[in-house]
Design a protein around this nucleic acid. Sequence first.
DNA 1: TATTTAACCTGGACGC
DNA 2: TGCGTCCAGGTTAAAT
Length: 290
Amino acid sequence: MPELPEVETVRDGLQRWVTGRRIADVEVRHPRAIRRHLAGADDLVARLIGASFASAERRGKYLWLPLPGRDECLVGHLGMSGQLLVQPPEVADEKHLHVRIRFADGGRELRFVDQRTFGGVQLDDLVPATDRPEQLVPAQVAHIARDPIDPYFDEAGFSRRLRKRDSAIKRALLDQSLISGVGNIYADESLWRAKLHGERPSRLLKPGQVADLLGHVRDVLGAALQAGGTSFDALYVNVNGQSGYFDRALAAYGREGEPCDRCGTPIRRSSFMNRSSFFCPTCQRPPRRA
DNA sequence: TATTTAACCTGGACGC
DNA sequence: TGCGTCCAGGTTAAAT
């Protein structure tokens, strides 16, 4: 499923393929895909036709395309199975095609395809970012923290807030208001690298441990980003299938029963937060129960 | 106020 | 082959 590296690959593709082109038509084929656009499909279509996208921006797993001269943008989230594809008009409709944007130049269309419809698109107002008012972000995204590969990510603030929390480390890593862009897979991988069990209380971490963990988060995301970038197919803005990110080397996630790359102990799987967590019981000692 | 839980959704895997 | 059940997980409203 798309996580930060995949979303960044999509953003890069949108920047190259979609920006600057005048929108001729918008087709909403599934209302759930625009459920967060409360004014409805007709409003979304009317406001997009004739406009163009100035750029492609991202924070965490949210993407947005600002409309020039207007303090609004088209926001997209891929959810768990969403794709934003740039397809030639003659290519047959995908089975789960929900939104189609045609351009006046008659070239490639922008398609939002989503099997599970957890994702969606909407128009949203642009508001000043809380930490840097000169930057505009969609109102819906304003409460999301910057991601760890953002040059303005507040490392000291993250460490302070993390250690103030009465929560488990993994839960904190998945909290987008604390740090964005980290999903279940990369959380497990980062914790394995940092030799920390996800259920360890975040308030007991020392500043050095937080810095170490953050370094591993950046390494994992960076490696995946590099893989996603190199396998990017120029014909598509694609996050699924063609991106090849499933082939990336995972040390913990999905490896239940396989030997830990560090110590050989079988990787264990447990249920945490209604999710699967994978960890090495030797390298990542679980906290003592109260 | 801070934290946790459950619901949303659908297709693939699996067991019978 | 067909049916039923479980599982995957990002986000957020609701519950604690």
